[in-house]
Every structure is written in structure tokens, then in C-alpha cells.
């Protein structure tokens, strides 16, 4: 058994994430608010003036739903990654770092924990979205959507880990939110097809991993997509792998001060 594969340590890091998640009820409900209100108010408000490129037979609210689901996953998992900063603030990071556990195992445990919490958030969002009128897909969608949900979560937990590894306090948090998370959300095609952007913005959008996540989930939920779901899946997998490696690499260089 290799030193970095430490199932017990990975498990307990995951377990801690679960316990903290289930104890933070206000966070669970609070983080559903923004995407839910976007979904019902944008979805109903733009019903008549829907953006160009949304297929005619698709209701705008249905079109918006996978995008909002992606946002729930993006923000939820990035917060879990950034929780390293909280741990640093409250000293618990030292407790994790002194243990005879490899940094890779720590990143794996955190990633699995963040994936699970983000996934649960996503499922909760789908449930509320159904109340708002989201129509659920057939069987193929059921297989595809969770897969994309997990890939998005794994990617953004590691964006969070990477950012938290190079930032040393909470000061830069707003910076990251405004200059990384919001653009990634707006470029992802969550609100409208990216063909509405000028060409140079479209190029930027193609470099956004969330684009492929939204596209894949849209295929799963509605059966419409820009790329084939297989291509979406492969590209997202590539992004995800790169981000996990980046996260693990940057975290491995963190000093215990």
C-alpha cells in the first residue's frame, strides 16, 4: 500500500466534512436561496423574451435549471475547498498538517467531502426546482446528471483548495469571488447560449470548465446540448484531473506556520 493512499485518514476527513455540513442548517438553506430565486424569477420573467439560441420547444425555466444547478455545485464545492482558510484561522489546519498523513490523502479526503456536500446541495436544489416547475428527465438523464454533478464538484473543490493554498487570509476572498467565480458562472452558458457573446468572449467561455458541465447536464435534463454529452464529459474530466493535480500540488507546498 502506498503512503499517500490512507483510507482511514481519507474517511475521517470526509466524515468531518459531513458532520460539519449537517450541523450547518442555515448554510444549507441559505445557499439554495440565490439560485432558486434566479430560477423562478428569471425563468418566469424572461419567458417571453428568451435569449436567442434557446431552442423553441424548450421553456426558458427548463433551460435555466441545469445552469442554476451548476451554480449551486460551483459555489457549494468552492466553499468547501476554501474551508481550508477557516481551518487556518481557527488553528485546526495545524492539527491536520502534523498528523503522519500525506498531503495527497488530505486533498483526497477534502475533495470527497466537498463532492458529497455539493452533491447533496445539488439534489436538494433539484427537489426545490421541481416545486418551481422543473420537469424531470427520463432514465438516461438520471445516469448522466449525477455524473456531471460529481465532476463539477470535484473540479471546484480543487479550485477552492488551490486558491486557499496560495491565499493566507480571508482578505482575498471577495477578490476571488468577484474575479473568478462570477465570470466562470456568467461565461458558462447557464443563463443563455454563449453564441450571444462577441467572438472573443466566446473563446474565453470555451476555457470555462463549467460550460461543459452545464451543457452535459442540460442534455441529461432536457435532451438539448451544444456539444455531444460524451465530448462534454471528456473535456470536463480533463479539466477535473488538471484541477485536482493543481490543488494537490499547491496544497503540498503549504507551510504550517
Amino acid at each position: 500500500m502506498k503512503a499517500w493512499f490512507n483510507p482511514q485518514a481519507i474517511y475521517v476527513l470526509w466524515l468531518r466534512e459531513m458532520k460539519r455540513y449537517l450541523r450547518a442548517r442555515s448554510r444549507i438553506i441559505g445557499s439554495l436561496g440565490m439560485p432558486f430565486f434566479f430560477l423562478i424569477f428569471l425563468g418566469t420573467g424572461f419567458k417571453q423574451f428568451r435569449p436567442a439560441g434557446v431552442p423553441d420547444h424548450v421553456d426558458y425555466l427548463q433551460y435555466l435549471a441545469p445552469g442554476m444547478l451548476a451554480v449551486v455545485l460551483q459555489f457549494g464545492s468552492m466553499f468547501t475547498g476554501m474551508a481550508i482558510l477557516w481551518d487556518r484561522q481557527f488553528g485546526f489546519l495545524k492539527e491536520i498538517m502534523v498528523a503522519p498523513v500525506s498531503r495527497v490523502a488530505i486533498v483526497l479526503g477534502r475533495t470527497l467531502g466537498g463532492m458529497t456536500t455539493a452533491f447533496l446541495q445539488g439534489v436538494l436544489f433539484l427537489a426545490v426546482a421541481c416545486i418551481a416547475g422543473l420537469q424531470l428527465p427520463g432514465l438516461s438523464g438520471w445516469a448522466l446528471v449525477p455524473l456531471f454533478m460529481l465532476l463539477i464538484a470535484a473540479s471546484f473543490v480543487n479550485v477552492g483548495i488551490a486558491v486557499a493554498s496560495v491565499m493566507h487570509d480571508m482578505q482575498g476572498f471577495g477578490l476571488v469571488m468577484n474575479f473568478l467565480m462570477i465570470p466562470l458562472f456568467l461565461l458558462s452558458g447557464a443563463l443563455f447560449p454563449i453564441e450571444n457573446f462577441p467572438e472573443w468572449v466566446q473563446v474565453l467561455a470555451l476555457a470555462d470548465p463549467l460550460l461543459y458541465g452545464v451543457d452535459g447536464m442540460r442534455f441529461g435534463l432536457l435532451g438539448v446540448s451544444r456539444f455531444s454529452p460524451v465530448l462534454d464529459g471528456l473535456i470536463l474530466c480533463a479539466f477535473c484531473t488538471a484541477l485536482v493535480i493543481t490543488g494537490a500540488f499547491l496544497f503540498s507546498r503549504v507551510d504550517v506556520e
Partner: peptide
Amino acid sequence: GMVFQDPALDDRLTGRENLDFHARMYG
């Protein structure tokens, strides 16, 4: 074993859970 100058506990966990976390990290 190491006890730091500043607190290094997870205050959202119970005392027992903090110890259990530690024990599992040490295998």
C-alpha cells in the same frame, strides 16, 4: 504528541469527535 500555543480544535465537533478524528488520522 503536540499541543500548540494557540487552540487547534474544530469547535463544530464535540470533544469526543475531535479525539476520534485525531486517532483515525494516526491510524
